[in-house]
């Protein structure tokens, strides 16, 4: 009844925080490898496409991206507050809109593949 809707975004924040803690170090390491020019075999077009075409691959990528953007969005709302921005409703709308756009784009591109 009186439980604030923050319960929902906090749930996404907590789940996303756990997931990013586990997954992002490896993800950043892969971008690091790409940046050095040593693109790993699994990231060559044919292999990564095979992965992204499969429903399991799509599901994994979507869950990671969805929870990550909502995690980051909620934390950015707190960051804004901590840096003295007091227009919380405006900030909340902005960051959650970004998260929603990210979620929709991720879903859209994943469905476009394959």
């Amino acid at each position: 009844m009186a439980i604030a809707k923050k319960a929902v975004v906090w749930g996404l924040f907590a789940a996303g925080g756990t997931l990013t803690s586990f997954v992002f170090p490896a993800l950043i390491a892969l971008f690091l490898l790409i940046a050095t020019g040593n693109v790993p075999e699994g990231l060559q077009f044919d292999q990564i496409r095979t992965f992204a075409v499969s429903w399991l691959g799509k599901a994994c990528l979507f869950i990671v991206l969805f929870l990550s953007v909502w995690h980051a969005a909620h934390r950015l709302r707190v960051v804004a507050h901590d840096f003295g921005i007091r227009k919380d409703a405006l900030v909340a709308n902005a960051v959650y809109t970004i998260a929603a756009i990210g979620s929709v784009l991720a879903a859209f591109y994943l469905l476009m593949i394959g």
Partner: peptide, 12 residues
């Protein structure tokens, strides 16, 4: 309590 609150929200 945040975990409780999030769970309770969906229960309600």
């Amino acid at each position: 309590m945040k975990v409780d609150g999030a769970v309770e929200f969906w229960k309600q």
